[in-house]
Design a protein around this nucleic acid. Sequence first.
DNA 1: ATGATTGCAAACAATTTGCACGGGA
DNA 2: TCCCGTGCAAATTGTTTGCAATCAT
Lengths: 140, 140
Amino acid sequence: MSETWQEELRSRGYRVTPQRQLVLEAVSVLEHGTPEEICTEVQRTAHGVNISTVYRTLELLEDLGLVKHTHLGHGPPTYHLATHADHVHLVCRGCGKVTDVSPRVADGLITVLRAEYGFETDVHHLTVYGECCENSPSVG
Amino acid sequence: MSETWQEELRSRGYRVTPQRQLVLEAVSVLEHGTPEEICTEVQRTAHGVNISTVYRTLELLEDLGLVKHTHLGHGPPTYHLATHADHVHLVCRGCGKVTDVSPRVADGLITVLRAEYGFETDVHHLTVYGECCENSPSVG
DNA sequence: ATGATTGCAAACAATTTGCACGGGA
DNA sequence: TCCCGTGCAAATTGTTTGCAATCAT
């Protein structure tokens, strides 16, 4: 981690542009954001970045390993910082809420899949669907 | 299981149509199929069912609990029979292969999430990304 | 100066919807 | 007969692409 991402970009022949900085910042602020939401967030701060630039930038940032994406449901993918990626997503079918939990909840799963199937789990991409407790009326 | 799905349909005020039978059959044959693939499969057998009917029918069949869907990646969702749903999907990032494994691999995960977060996991919807062993050159 | 990057608009892909006709109960 | 379900086409939504102008290096 001796290089900033800006230096990383330049060393690869890419350029550091305001749009790329803004998109990365928006991903950071939103924690979980779809391309559409990221575009809107950027527009709150600056003059605005075109949606197609958001798509192109997210692809680049993901390629650089700065951001990651997951599929949280039917809709568009959600992006988050790679440094913030160390968690598993719980998605409630009832209220739609997304909860981040420690990847350690999947330790058992990872072990079993590796032992029985030789399968290396990408825990950062793991999303678990179900129903959260707050979905019941007993909790405000 | 004292009722056929046809009776179930009728008792709910829905009608049993050839299209609905064909779509359900296609889901059964394909095991994992996107709406598009299901539509194509139906066309192999019969005169054809319109893609919008496929979407409407899948929604209905899922509502009745006859089929389920999962998101196996970027693209459209894949549908499978509910009776065939008792498994977890492993998706290999390398070769794209989808493997069905016993839901028991998630027993630990389910227990932890219930105990620590009061979260009821929908194991039938669970998809795990990673890399399968056959992705390595040591296996044919 | 040079060419990577952006904005815009049009192309694409996946899914949904409105409506008149046809077929199941 | 009644009206649910279908096909078709148009509308939406999400994403990609071509191209000229612009800006980082």
